[in-house]
Amino acid sequence: MVTEAVKYEKKDSIAFITMNRPEKRNALSIEMAAGLVDALKDAEKDPEVKVVIISGEGKIFSAGGDLEVLHTLDNSAKIMEYMKQALAIIQTIRELDKYVISAVHGFAAGAGFSIAVAADFVVAKKDAAFVCSFTNVGIIPDLGLLKELTDNLPNAVVKEWISSGRPIAAEEAYHRGIVNHVTAEDVVEAAMHYAAFIVDGPPLANTFVKHMVNHADEWSSGTNDLQETAIQTLLLQTEDNKEGIQAFFEKRKPNFRGK
């Protein structure tokens, strides 16, 4: 789906996906939701892309759900369709075979917060903030944010962040383990530098690491052991594994090709 609400560019093995409704503070419309999913799938299909960076055009990352759109959803069918489209963003990020980095500046509020922390890694501008703004309009966090927070933070902190709706500074989010890296520089450029270990890393192994970690809480120890053994058996037969071993003995940087 081609849409003006989402920009897609590619450079040096990185796909740049930009939410492009700056006049609406990158509020999430159905068009933008569909565009984000399509852009993510385009990145996944491109063999040259090794990592995806999601950012927002203009002064902020995203203000969350578009209240003007939400205000028009006057029945369950319309609400469910909007939620389905929005949730597809989070599901696609989680199941994508490539790592996704969110580059957050200004603030990420409501559904914008959900999208930011659904990424595999979060890079935030030093003056950025994350806002659980849902209770301000009488609803609960959605798009997987409640589970994401409760999986990573003490319950008391989650309840405070949600119920108060106060801005969570990037530094606080970093110390709570929600943000990977805080920068004073341009946040997209910082995300590009941060992505170096992914771009230079083994694509196949990274794919399996992402899915193993994302689904670890669904498996028993026995199932996890079986998954590890099967995946390791596969990876030990790849060209990347042979290249990594050869590079180790030759004391050079490996050139992984995803084969």
Rank of each mutant, 00 (worst) to 15 (best):
A205N: 02
N75I: 07
D120T: 11
A77Y: 10
I231S: 00
R21D: 00
E31L: 07
A15P: 15
A109M: 06
E250M: 08
A128Q: 07
A247E: 12
M192L: 08
T72N: 00
Y82C: 01
K259M: 13
A247P: 14
S29G: 06
K125F: 13
F61G: 01
I93F: 13
T18R: 15
Y99R: 15
N180W: 13
V2N: 12
E228C: 04
E57H: 08
A170F: 01
V122F: 11
T72H: 00
F208T: 03
I115C: 01
D151V: 05
L73P: 00
N214V: 11
S76H: 06
I30K: 09
I115E: 02
I139P: 00
D12G: 14
K251Q: 14
I53T: 07
E189Y: 08
T72P: 00
K147Q: 13
T135V: 01
I54V: 15
A33Y: 02
M83D: 05
Q85K: 10
V6W: 09
A124S: 09
A108C: 07
E171R: 08
I54A: 12
N20H: 11
M192N: 11
P141Q: 10
P154D: 08
R25I: 07
G165S: 02
M80E: 14
V100P: 04
A169I: 07
Y99K: 15
R176V: 04
S133C: 07
T150A: 10
E95F: 13
G201E: 07
D127S: 02
F16T: 13
I60Q: 01
V104F: 12
G201A: 10
N255S: 12
I14D: 10
E48N: 15
F249W: 12
G56K: 01
F61C: 02
G65H: 01
N136F: 08
V213T: 13
S29D: 09
P203G: 13
V37R: 12
V157G: 02
A63C: 05
M19N: 05
F248I: 12
V51I: 15
S164Q: 08
D74H: 09
K10F: 15
H215C: 10
S221T: 03
A108L: 07
A195F: 14
R94F: 14
I198S: 13
G165A: 04
E185P: 03
